[in-house]
């Protein structure tokens, strides 16, 4: 028979073991969020395609046709969509995780489980959307007869980087929203702002060389450049110093996100 001892500081020591133990709950919460996401909508899961699709059209028209931004020979819709793929994943996960803890406050104030499960579940939901969009991108590439080369094999690595960025930012924002509901208002703003600050509608090659390193402080710049490099046959060359800087920032974000989350987690049930 299992024996459980409750005393001060004990949950702290067994945290990571508990996280593994509660994996079943993690699956279930993610499953619930996926099921619920498009309930009582008419077009259902089509929404996860429609939003990036419409954004793609608007950006293609504005940046590609009107502003005539360079695309180094790549069809402009594909240029936009390869960036939208990681960006949507990041911004969806980020927005969903932000609210996730507060939305599950009844669970948090009643049952014990490692709280990291909840924002991670939101990221999983974002990842499902990401996969659906990826299929769409494939269709788009077939339509334009634009096939990626061997570089596409590196895509899982860049996907991992974007996953790390989404998790790090998600943990941080989720923990902050528990205490400061102000972040509810900040999150949509960041998500909207980031769409224009990150090289989604344009290629980051248009940024003057002397600013590129500075520009790469935005972790999504490295991620998006990586996606373009992997998918567009290297037509968008990877600016390595900038990419490594982004990589460092993403790692720092993830570590800091987990650290801050863990630090404040103990008080969630009391302040939520």
């Amino acid at each position: 028979m299992s024996r459980l001892v409750i005393e001060a500081g004990r949950a702290e020591r067994h945290y990571w073991r508990d996280l593994w133990r509660y994996r079943e709950l993690f699956y279930f919460l993610a499953w619930r969020d996926i099921l619920v996401r498009y309930k009582q909508t008419v077009i259902g899961v089509t929404w996860s395609l429609l939003r990036p699709f419409l954004t793609m059209i608007v950006f293609t028209v504005i940046f590609g046709k009107l502003a005539k931004m360079p695309s180094s020979g790549v069809p402009y819709p594909i240029l936009v969509f390869t960036a939208l793929l990681p960006w949507q994943f990041f911004s969806n996960s980020f927005s969903e995780s932000g609210n996730s803890l507060v939305a599950n406050s009844n669970l948090i104030s009643k049952i014990y489980f490692p709280r990291l499960i909840i924002p991670s579940g939101s990221v999983v939901v974002g990842f499902i959307d990401f996969l659906i969009s990826a299929v769409f991108l494939m269709a788009l590439m077939i339509w334009y007869h634009f096939m990626p080369d061997w570089r596409v094999l590196t895509l899982p690595f860049f996907t991992l980087v974007s996953l790390a960025a989404a998790l790090g930012a998600g943990f941080l924002i989720a923990a902050l929203t528990v205490k400061y509901r102000d972040f509810r208002f900040i999150v949509p703003f960041i998500a909207q702002f980031g769409l224009y600050v990150s090289p989604v509608g344009f290629s980051s090659t248009i940024v003057p060389d002397k600013w590129r390193l500075l520009y790469s402080l935005n972790p999504m710049v490295g991620v998006i450049d990586g996606f373009r490099w992997a998918l567009l046959r290297g037509q968008a060359e990877l600016y390595l110093p900038g990419f490594f800087l982004s990589l460092v920032i993403v790692t720092a974000l993830l570590v800091f996100g987990i650290w801050y989350f863990r630090k404040t987690e103990r008080t969630f049930a009391d302040v939520i």
């Binding site: 028979m1 299992s2 024996r3 459980l4 001892v5 409750i6 005393e7 001060a8 500081g9 004990r10 949950a11 009844n106 669970l107 948090i108 104030s109 009643k110 049952i111 014990y112 103990r266 049930a269 009391d270």
Partner: peptide
Amino acid sequence: LSRITEPTKGRITIEGRVASLLEVGTG
């Protein structure tokens, strides 16, 4: 007992699995 908060002092030893009958529809 349901491990939502930790005690400041003292300890509880529980032999076996615990479940709480939650407030209506919590889960």
